[in-house]
């Protein structure tokens, strides 16, 4: 597994750059990761990110966009504004989780 440096932190990532160690993540790292993809985290972003973290811990897999909306309570429209382009993957990246596997 590659090790990369983000800010002053050394982290374990997969070949694309997604964090592979759940325990290496904290809010500070999330800010650094978000900055890498030009996102400044607002309260709305945090709500989604923390849902992803908790849901992954409970379910063992990264939630899909639909799940973030239906279970996490963040409207789909908002997710596309908060994490433009590829919201599911961007959220997963910032939350230090693998890309979601689900189709919907």
């Amino acid at each position: 597994m590659p090790i990369t440096t983000v800010g002053d932190r050394q982290i374990h990532v997969d070949d694309e750059g997604f964090l592979t160690e759940y325990s290496e993540w904290d809010d500070e790292l999330a800010k650094l990761l978000a900055a890498q993809i030009d996102i400044q985290l607002s309260a709305e972003h945090w709500k989604a990110i923390h849902f992803l973290r908790d849901d992954f811990k409970a379910q063992g897999q990264t939630p899909t966009l639909r799940r973030v909306t239906v279970v996490g309570g963040v409207p789909t429209k908002d997710l596309f504004q908060l994490f433009p382009g590829k919201p599911a993957k961007k959220m997963a990246y910032i939350a230090g989780l693998p890309k979601p596997q689900g189709c919907v």
């Binding site: 990369t4 750059g17 997604f18 890498q36 993809i37 382009g85």
Partner: peptide, 15 residues
């Protein structure tokens, strides 16, 4: 020389 951080490429959406 500091190696750039390994970051997923999310930019291919802009094509």
């Amino acid at each position: 020389e500091v190696a750039p951080a390994l970051v997923p490429n999310f930019d291919d959406v802009t094509t």
